[in-house]
Design a protein around this nucleic acid. Structure first.
Lengths: 144, 144
DNA sequence: TCCCTATTGCAATAGAGTTGCATTTGCGTA
DNA sequence: TACGCAAATGCAACTCTATTGCAATAGGGA
């Protein structure tokens, strides 16, 4: 267990350094948090969590943005005027860009896999440009 | 022409009153503006336009929100932390909810028709809830 | 035309996010 | 292992979008 922890810590540090950034406590804690999350976290969710460690919200914000720019995180806005961040590389599963479902009632965000458009819609969308992200909104089953 | 204008004015006034609101100059001007728009307008776009008429931005905002609540407008956030409004009923074409395409480079918003998900994706999405809105993001053809 | 209440203008405020700057701290190097 | 410097941090002030309180104004039904 201890060993496990230590390995995780080292791999996180390595990932940060490989991105060209310094492995500071705030950044390590941020990545640990995101590693354990099942959906993207907002800036304030991360900030609240790291406040106990004495990390300033401005630092959290800079780190999230910097790590997103460095390619460690993905930053998106899902329609509620708040930025959300998720790990780019998380064992592959949700590593690549994937669609999100946002409940317009409770605000819950879910990560989806494998949402595809029909061939006709794909063609139609080409008229506008190259699609890089799909976002679905609606009423989730809990609120439905 | 004059006749045409007058008819349009009356139908706008009527629409506002039918929604249970008073047909004030600010609201009429807002609807006229949105009627002539080809894509959703932001609050500040509308406010800038109506400023010449001496309309306060708070009023513009309240009107946009009120008319959205009343069902005259649709209010959405397309990923750039700004609310956008469009007519709900515009001769039918873009009257019902429809997908939007947002260019992540230049911010341009386009209204799309007829984007559909594959049957498999539809089924998958049911696990999360009832989809009411689709948003696509990517690089528009102008930005390459 | 009159009156009631919806609406407006103005100013103050809320909340998310950003920035300037002096201080601290990773971490490559000697 | 100690050193030094650029990167990172904390703190406070600030920006931008959106919202609200309140007194004054004006639709529009009676």
């Amino acid at each position: 267990m201890k060993q496990q922890k230590s390995e995780e810590l080292e791999s996180i540090k390595l990932a940060i350094r490989e991105a060209g950034l310094r492995a500071t406590p705030a950044r390590i804690a941020t990545l640990k948090l995101l590693y354990g999350a099942t959906s993207p976290l907002t800036h304030s969710e991360v900030a609240d969590e790291l406040q106990d460690l004495g990390v300033d919200k401005a630092t959290v914000f800079r780190n999230l943005n910097d790590m997103a720019t460095a390619g460690l995180l993905r930053r998106t806005e899902l329609g509620d005027r708040v930025w959300r961040f998720e790990l780019v590389s998380k064992g592959g599963e949700h590593g690549s860009a994937h669609p999100h479902f946002v409940c317009v009632d409770c605000g819950t965000v879910s990560c989806m896999d494998e949402i595809k458009l029909t061939a006709g819609s794909m063609r139609l969308s080409q008229e506008f440009g190259e699609i890089t992200e799909i976002l679905l909104r609606g009423h989730c089953n809990d609120c439905g």
